[in-house]
Simulated scan of single mutants.
Amino acid sequence: MKISIPSRARPVPVGKVLCIGRNYADHAAEMDRDVPDKPMVFLKPPSALLRSGASVQLPPQSQDVHHEVELVAVVGQEGKRIPRSAALDHVAGYAVGLDMTARDLQAEAKERRHPWSVAKGFDTFAPLGPIRPAEAVDDVQDLTLRLTVNGDTRQEASTRHQIFSVRELVHYCSQIFTLSPGDLLYTGTPSGVGPVHDGDHLTASATGVDPLSVSVERAG
């Protein structure tokens, strides 16, 4: 998939899809897990991306797929070992996204101390909304995230409750990976995660960012 980055004249291919686990204390509590002392980073393949208006496919391997609404930072400038003071300069835009998770497969992986890649990486498991230029977002640490399922609010929280700010996450990830234009950083979900079912309609939003809307269907 190619995405349009506000700072670039032409669309660029998506690179790394970096995701952060347990970045809200209330979500860590609902999952009965400790609050991390440093960011928990995992990856999704670019093939998991899905545009707004399309359908999340429920895979036959799972009977318990959950929604997780997240703010997504879009990298627009390459950087390695980026200082905190310059971290947000490398972000070209923001979008709202969903980290779809096969919770039953994730639980099984945790029991066996295996990676989460299968539970997180199915095709269509990373819906991404339209990208808003970073300069059009007033304060990335004071945005309200919201997810509705069939019109009912399931998740709602402010990014000010993130354990690790967007600035800190960009800095931290750049100590491990060279960040490149087209990389996406899913910054974690608040509490309220839950299952989705065939026929559901999901709408995700964040203050000042265009909404994301997807349907859900069982893969044939």
Rank of each mutant, 00 (worst) to 15 (best):
G188A: 13
E30R: 15
C173P: 13
I82F: 00
L143A: 00
P46Q: 01
D123M: 06
S47A: 11
P6E: 00
L145S: 04
I131H: 03
D200M: 11
R10P: 04
R154L: 06
L184P: 06
R33S: 13
E135F: 13
A95C: 07
N23D: 07
S7E: 08
F164P: 06
A119E: 04
V96K: 02
E168R: 04
F122G: 05
G192I: 04
D26K: 05
R113C: 06
S62C: 04
T144H: 01
V193W: 03
P190M: 10
Q63I: 13
A95T: 06
P39K: 01
Q57C: 11
P127I: 03
T187S: 13
D142Y: 05
H161D: 15
R84W: 11
A86N: 06
I176H: 10
H201D: 11
P60I: 06
E68D: 08
C19N: 02
L50H: 10
I131M: 03
V69P: 10
K80N: 11
T124L: 07
P195M: 09
V166K: 05
P36E: 04
P83T: 00
A73L: 15
S55L: 10
P115A: 03
A73P: 10
A109N: 10
Q141D: 12
H114Y: 14
P59C: 10
G79T: 00
K44L: 05
R167G: 14
F177D: 00
P130I: 11
T148H: 00
D183C: 05
R33P: 13
